[in-house]
Design a protein around this nucleic acid. Structure first.
Lengths: 123, 123
DNA sequence: CGGCATCCAACTGGATACTG
DNA sequence: CAGTATCCAGTTGGATGCCG
């Protein structure tokens, strides 16, 4: 994959880690996944559930995830229009690693915050 | 933490998930952690190991990680100067969740890439 | 309702040059 | 050697308004 196999190849845009990290690091992707864990939602429901996200940005996030095969977008031909978003098996399988990360975060947050405080006060 | 406990609270900057995600999603943090897994390195070694990172950016990354208690920065009073960076126990404990993510990435990359191709050709 | 188009402000990452 | 200072380009996230 790179001149240093097995090592830091994440500046290669096609590196698996980079691809996933770019998506995970996105501000809204993780929120969308967690919101869809219990089943499909329509656009406005997602928007309300997540809160504070502009429609354009939510659309961007959703399209990127759809492109990566993490969720499906179903347009119902009716008036008013209705569009449902649902995790694919691939998208659902991402909940596991995310949960690992979340658990770590919750467990160690106090330590991080404490480190920050002591670092800031030492400056 | 939020009006919807247990749910999407990641737009709160102090949310544990958000704090960790911001760091993980950073372009270089994961590379630094992986580079330091086998022991401490000095600034120039890190730079060479990672490749393609500007000094300023590497410094920023390192400082942010030091602030969060993920690594220690040790200045040796000698000429020429020498500064060693080493993971703390906290930083080292992050390698586990990262490995989970990396494993997922490597396992599912082909599927993601395939999804992208079919999505792009359908447009 | 579910967007797309437009415009925009802020932040991020980076190239380059210089210093204790 | 290990940064700092400066400047800069690209991207991200967002506000607003219009449309099928």
């Amino acid at each position: 994959m790179n001149s240093e196999p097995g090592r830091g190849d994440a500046f290669d845009p096609d590196c698996p880690t980079r691809v996933v990290l770019d998506r995970i690091g996105d501000k809204w992707t993780v929120l969308v996944i967690r919101s869809l864990e219990d089943g499909s939602l329509r656009f406005s429901e997602l928007r309300a559930r997540i809160g504070g996200v502009a429609p354009k940005v939510l659309t961007q996030t959703l399209r990127a995830m759809e492109r990566d095969g993490l969720l499906t977008r179903t347009v119902h031909a009716q008036v008013p229009p209705r569009v449902d978003y649902e995790l694919t098996a691939l998208g659902a399988s991402l909940t596991a690693p995310i949960a690992t990360l979340t658990d770590w975060a919750e467990t160690h947050l106090s330590r991080i915050l404490a480190a920050r405080e002591s670092y800031d006060s030492a400056s």
